[in-house]
Design a binder for these strands. Structure first.
Lengths: 108, 108
DNA sequence: GCCAAAGTACGATCGCTGTCAAACTTCGAC
DNA sequence: GTCGAAGTTTGACAGCGATCGTACTTTGGC
């Protein structure tokens, strides 16, 4: 058991910052990740997304999303699973994710 | 009558792009402009906002907001008035401005 | 006509961030 | 134990965009 076995830090819902959430969502790749998560309705591993970037760049994007409070991450084997914190986000920023995921998920 | 007398180009509501709108709203200064416009309920001249930037920078921000479709601009004397295109935005991106202006307008 | 007020246009700068490749770590399967 | 799959870490790089000062334009008031 090493660093990979521990779950990374997640912000509390109450201390989520709108500015940080917006900066996370303004990137097309990250917004696509959120949209895909929302559409799938299930948790997905990092490799389970259709995004046009390298693995290291993907890692970066997932970190930004997690630090903003948008997703929760946990390990299952070697896979890092990603879960959309939908209900929590709706609680703090009602209507925001609705407004963004309502849009047709454009190809990026 | 010169360049100042003509109204600058405004995008149609139908051709407003979510990505562009998000990029416009992610900047704290611009988001503050939108929030102040929404709160005031009236049109305001460029000089009528509480924003911590120079005049030339302010011009840039207003241009970005206009090109994204968020505000409408027209001249009254030497003043350039700014009007929030609230209803039109609500039509294309329902809930978006609601979610953003609901937040307490933080000091920037 | 002259001047001040309100913005605009133009460069220049500077920091941030998205990107990748390469090397590394961890875990599961065999 | 070896190997491959899945991610991470690190360092480097490139491009964008927010910012400012300065010079300029337009308009209205006197």
């Amino acid at each position: 058991m090493g660093a990979m076995g521990r779950t990374p830090p997640h912000p509390e819902v109450s201390q989520c910052d709108l500015q940080q959430v917006l900066e996370a969502l303004v990137d097309p790749v990250r917004r696509s990740i959120v949209t895909q998560l929302d559409a799938s309705g299930t948790d997905l591993p990092c490799g389970g997304f259709d995004i046009p970037v390298s693995k290291s760049t993907a890692t970066h994007h997932f970190n930004v999303l997690r630090e903003a409070g948008l997703i929760r991450q946990y390990y299952v084997g070697t896979s890092r699973m990603n879960s959309l914190r939908r209900a929590e986000m709706d609680e703090v920023f009602p209507g925001l994710l609705d407004a963004l995921t309502r849009q047709p998920a454009k190809k990026i």
